[in-house]
Design a protein around this nucleic acid. Structure first.
Length: 716
DNA sequence: ATAGGGTTAG
């Protein structure tokens, strides 16, 4: 029977009581009255477990361990089980394993303890391996084993293993055990099989609050926050009170649908219940505020916590990144490193995302270097993020380098690279990669096609793009809104306006902002007033506060000299209290970001910058550059046409770049709007005259200017 | 007097 090995059951009074004194000194465990001492003396299991319960670090465990050996209890099942339990709790799983391995013929309690340990430490594969071994040596799992095993399946997202365990549950007669069944619900949820989870939940006889929490979080985790909240209401209708873990899932569901009002009222519930400093709830609330755009409150919730974990840091870092506070995100990541807190893959992916959004190649390189020297170098998710980052920061070559170094390329890796090529207008590379991918036996997904269509779009390959769109269904993928939007853009920008409109009317989904936006922008380029006005009408009702649409329409009118139209749009904007978005460009010099707005004179070296700017202008004129006056007319808020022609923010950034970097250095600029016709032509020429490569990331794509040409081939 | 179970958050 369990634990009845041939070992002494009690110690001598002398040997144990001296040990008690030693051990008390470090555990602070005061055995207050004599009966406790007596119990301890005559019941070593009780004595050791009460000591172990108070152990919080390896030092305690070491001392207890040596006492166990001295007193000859290293083969006592009760004590060793407890030891494994405690040491895995304090993160000393290898210590736990050592005791387990030294135990002759471990029985089910010991197996359970060690499997639990690995599962708790997120070492799911090891837990599952031990589970297999346990069965191989003929130890039958019991109803305590299964929840740990299920947790490991969930953590490893091992659906098939989970299903197999589910089968064993029936065969073992554990199907009535609510603990086990709750675990099954969670496994299916973590594997994304929400229907299986629901079935198990529906079949559950005596549901507990944990069962409800499991199914609510199952929906919340699988992108169905509304259904999660519906079930939550149903649970309340049964008169069940949520516990704090339920609230975690409910708050995260509200975060997903960005319902700050409901979220806030739950926040006050949390405070009323005195759960304000419960870390997991704090994390959910921080995420709620961050997702709803309230970074300041999120930050204060983060700051108030003295003790945080990685997940909290991740919530804050990605919260910053998602709100465009890229520098804050990166700074926080660095602070985490300087505090010797261990980031995990989610942390580094968020930090990489922040770099990608920031667009600074220098910052991106630093991040890349950090990853190269870290354990995350081989992680697929991290590599995917890196590919995306380098592509978005202007270096498609570095992106490709990471891509080539990524050993196991899944569909997301391939897609990231294809999307990267698309962003840079390298359509042929994108399509080539697509063929290589198919040769490698990887099935494309919807994102792959977004990348391909964008690539064709940026390169003006209409027929190629059309063929690709037509082939989407051959791969068993239903085209989404974004695919349709790509096609409209593709046709529109190539000047096939009627065909684009025809396509819109025939497509099976309702056109939204980006589709009408694409048609409007094409109508502006090709001066198609009728379609432009129609698209603008749709946009004004769908998205009345977006200034961009008004500017586009006004530019369209200006390009065909319909000044009354220009005036009408201006009035409309005034009525709605809208002003034109300010053009803004950034250039990074020696690790410092310099921001320029149109006509900006705030830079400390402003005088030199304008001097250089004038010099450039002269050189452009000497080279025969004629400003396209149309662009000046396009500009709604600028009355002074000449000034608007040459003071565009990217020109100032370039001027500054030229005077502050050695001859031949590539200039890298990020701007918030799309490139204007005039600047685009000017920068092409500057790249030749000044012999510089200039890389500009506009709000839509990259332009690589070199030797008087741009990678976009004047098509954007 | 004596060893174990489920649900959460990025």
């Amino acid at each position: 029977m369990a634990g009845n090995l041939a070992v002494p059951k009690t110690l001598t009074r002398f040997s144990l009581s001296t040990k008690i004194l030693d051990l008390q000194s470090f555990t602070g465990h005061d055995l207050k009255n004599r009966s406790n001492i007596y119990n301890s003396i005559f019941n070593p299991e009780s004595f050791y477990t009460s000591l172990l319960d108070r152990s919080t670090c390896r030092r305690h465990l070491n001392q207890i361990h040596s006492q166990i050996i001295v007193t000859g209890f290293q083969y006592n099942g009760y004590i060793v089980t407890k030891f494994i339990h405690v040491s895995s709790n304090v993160g000393e799983i290898s210590y736990a394993r050592q005791l387990f391995d030294e135990f002759p013929e471990p029985y089910v309690f010991l197996w359970n303890a060690i499997i639990r340990g690995y599962s708790k430490q997120n070492m799911f594969d090891e837990a599952l391996m031990l589970y297999t071994r346990m069965q191989n040596v003929g130890v039958r799992p019991d109803c305590f084993t299964l929840p740990h095993v299920l947790k490991a399946c969930g953590g490893a997202a091992a659906f098939e293993v989970g299903q197999a365990v589910h089968g064993q549950i029936f065969r073992g007669g554990f199907e009535r055990d609510v603990f086990v069944q709750n675990g099954v619900v969670a496994v299916y949820a973590k594997c994304g099989r929400i229907d299986h989870a629901r079935n198990v939940f529906e079949g559950l006889g005596g549901r507990t609050i944990v069962s409800w929490t499991s199914i609510i979080s199952a929906y919340a985790q699988n992108g169905q926050p509304i259904e999660a909240l519906r079930i939550f209401k149903k649970m309340r209708n049964y008169g069940l009170q949520p516990d704090w873990i339920t609230l975690v899932s409910v708050i995260s569901a509200y975060a997903d649908i960005e319902d700050l009002g409901q979220g806030k009222s739950l926040h006050s519930c949390v405070i009323k219940m005195g759960l304000e400093f419960e870390l997991d709830l704090r994390i959910a609330l921080t995420t709620l505020y961050a997702k709803c755009g309230n970074v300041m409150i999120a930050k204060s919730l983060f700051d108030e916590m003295e003790i945080s974990n990685v997940i909290m840091w991740n919530a804050m870092i990605s919260g910053f990144a998602k709100n465009g506070c890229c520098n804050e995100a990166i700074t926080l990541f660095q602070r985490m490193l300087s505090k010797n807190l261990r980031p995990d893959t989610v942390t580094v992916c968020s930090a990489i995302l922040a770099c990608a959004q920031l667009g600074s190649l220098e910052e991106a390189r630093k991040m890349g270097e950090y990853i190269d020297n870290s354990e995350y170098r081989i992680d697929v998710f991290v590599n995917t993020a890196l590919i995306d980052m380098y592509a978005k920061c202007g270096s498609i070559d570095l992106a490709r380098k990471v891509f080539d170094q990524t050993k196991t390329k899944d569909i997301v890796v391939w897609s990231a690279m294809i999307v990267g090529y698309g962003l840079h207008g390298r359509a042929h590379e994108a399509i080539n990669l697509f063929y290589l991918m198919k040769q490698a036996g990887v099935r494309p997904n919807d994102v792959t096609f977004i990348g391909l269509l964008t690539a064709c779009n940026h390169a003006g390959l209409v027929e190629e793009g059309w063929r690709i769109f037509d082939s989407i269904r051959d791969y068993g993928i239903e085209p989404r809104y974004q695919h349709y939007a790509c096609v409209v853009d593709l046709l529109g920008r190539a000047g096939c306006l009627e065909r684009a409109y025809d396509f819109i009317t025939k497509m099976p989904i309702k056109p939204g902002v980006s589709i009408w936006g694409a048609l409007l922008s094409a109508s502006r380029i090709y001066r198609h007033v009728e379609l432009g006005e129609y698209s603008a009408q749709q946009l004004f009702s769908l998205d009345p506060c977006n200034t961009g649409h008004y500017v586009q329409l006004s530019n369209l009118y200006a390009s065909v000299f319909m000044w009354s139209g220009v005036a009408r749009v201006r009035v409309l904007m005034k009525e709605r209290g809208l002003t034109k978005d300010m053009g803004c460009s950034m250039i990074e010099i020696e690790g410092k970001l310099h921001v320029f707005r149109m006509g900006d004179i705030s830079h400390p070296r402003s005088n030199e910058i304008y001097k250089e700017h004038k010099r450039l202008d002269r050189r452009l004129k000497e080279a025969g550059f004629v400003a396209d006056t149309d662009s000046a007319l396009h500009d709604l808020s600028y009355e002074d046409k000449e000034e608007s022609l040459c003071n565009h923010s990217e020109r100032l950034a370039i001027a500054y770049g030229l005077i502050s970097t050695p001859y031949g250095t590539t200039l890298r600029i990020t701007k918030n709007l799309r490139a204007c016709v005039n600047c685009h032509a000017a920068i092409k020429l500057i790249s030749r005259l000044e012999n510089r490569e200039i890389v500009v990331r506009d709000s839509n794509r990259f332009h690589h200017y070199k030797g008087g040409e741009c990678s976009c081939g004047d098509y954007w």
